[in-house]
Simulated assay, not measured.
Amino acid sequence: MNARRPYRSDVSDARWALIEPVFTAWRARRIGPGPAARVHDLREIVNAILYVNRTGIPWEYLPHDFPPCKTVYGYYAKWEADGTTQQVHDLLRDKTRRAHGRSPQPTAAVVDAQSVKTSTNVAETSQGQGIDAGKRTAVIGSGAAAFTALATLADLAKDEIGTHAVWILCRRISGSTFDGGTADQLPARGALGLAAKAAVDDGHADAVTGFRTEAIERDEDGRPILTGEDGRRLDPVDEVIVLTGFRPDLSSSPRSASASTYASRPPPRRPR
């Protein structure tokens, strides 16, 4: 590893010892036994991804003491596409569950982007019926997919009593949270941002800002309760929809679960 001052997001020696074999094997499969130079330290690539994941900055703002942002993104994209990220996630999940005396394979499924059934070719009144209608739903994420979920739930709330969204954000709401609105260079993206803003302004969604999920518990009725790293404990919800790209570990025993510490929020865009 190159000598530099450490960042708080850097992977620790103990955690790197757990996941290094996965990345070393990945590199060996791609390069083979030949003399080709290993240009970049894989631990530094992981550290750079964790830095962007933790801070939420655009790729282009990656500090210069990391490898080039386009290089880091290239590794990130490959690991996402070929299942390496999922392999690391599964490894850490299994070890965590074993350490807590649980079966390595969870009995509950992750609710992710596929939970929101929405399409521009389907009537709004039919979107999400039987899935989110009449429920209190936590939406985790801050991109176009999260905007779509919020807009869909807001539409359902107009006809289905009890439908409400809890929008969970790692960062505070600012002028850029909803993208560019009417001034956005991509009109469709701007429209989604405005729809999400309207969902909050009209009271169909509550925004919980500066919240990073530390654990998920269950109330007596089995409803998820999200607890943040800062100790905040949210009211129970009926469903949790993860729209961040990465899939944090929301699998659980009947009472509790812990979120993945490897990656919970992906960098949103390819670097320019």
Score class of each variant (00 low, 15 high):
Asn2Phe: 07
Arg4Gln: 02
Arg5Gln: 04
Tyr7Leu: 06
Arg8Glu: 05
Ser9Phe: 04
Ser9Cys: 12
Asp13Met: 08
Leu18Arg: 13
Phe23Ser: 01
Thr24Cys: 03
Trp26Ile: 03
Pro33Ser: 04
Ala36Ser: 02
Arg43Asp: 08
Arg43Met: 08
Glu44Trp: 12
Glu44Thr: 13
Val46Ile: 13
Leu50Asp: 00
Val52Met: 15
Thr55Cys: 08
Ile57Ser: 06
Trp59Ser: 05
Tyr61Leu: 15
Pro63Gln: 06
His64Asp: 15
His64Leu: 13
Phe66Arg: 06
Pro67Cys: 13
Pro67Trp: 14
Gly74Asn: 04
Gly74Ala: 01
Tyr76Phe: 14
Asp82Glu: 14
Gln86Arg: 15
His89Leu: 08
Leu92His: 02
Asp94Cys: 04
Arg98Ala: 10
His100Arg: 15
Ser103Tyr: 14
Ala108Val: 11
Ala108Gln: 12
Val110Arg: 04
Ala113Lys: 14
Ala113Val: 12
Ala113Met: 06
Ser115Val: 14
Ser115Gly: 15
Lys117Asp: 07
Ser119Gln: 09
Ala123Gly: 13
Thr125Trp: 11
Ser126Arg: 09
Gly128Ile: 00
Ile131Trp: 02
Gly134Thr: 02
Lys135Arg: 15
Thr137Ser: 07
Ala138Lys: 07
Ala138Pro: 02
Gly143Met: 11
Gly143Ser: 15
Gly143Tyr: 08
Leu156Pro: 00
Leu156Val: 01
Ile161His: 12
Ile161Glu: 15
Gly162Lys: 08
Thr163Pro: 03
Thr163Arg: 02
His164Trp: 01
Ala165Met: 08
Val166Thr: 12
Ile168Gly: 09
Arg172Thr: 05
Ile173Phe: 04
Gly175Pro: 12
Gly175Phe: 10
Thr177Pro: 05
Phe178Met: 04
Gly180Phe: 11
Arg189Tyr: 02
Ala191Val: 01
Asp201Val: 13
Gly203Arg: 03
Gly203Ala: 06
Gly203Met: 09
Ala205Met: 11
Ala205Asp: 11
Asp206Leu: 02
Ile216Gly: 01
Arg218Pro: 00
Glu220Ile: 07
Asp221His: 10
Gly222Pro: 04
Leu226Phe: 07
Leu234Phe: 06
Asp235Glu: 14
Val237Ser: 09
Asp238Cys: 12
Ile241Met: 12
Ser251Met: 07
Ser251Pro: 03
Arg255Val: 07
Thr261Asp: 13
Ser264Asn: 01
Arg265Glu: 07
Pro271Trp: 11
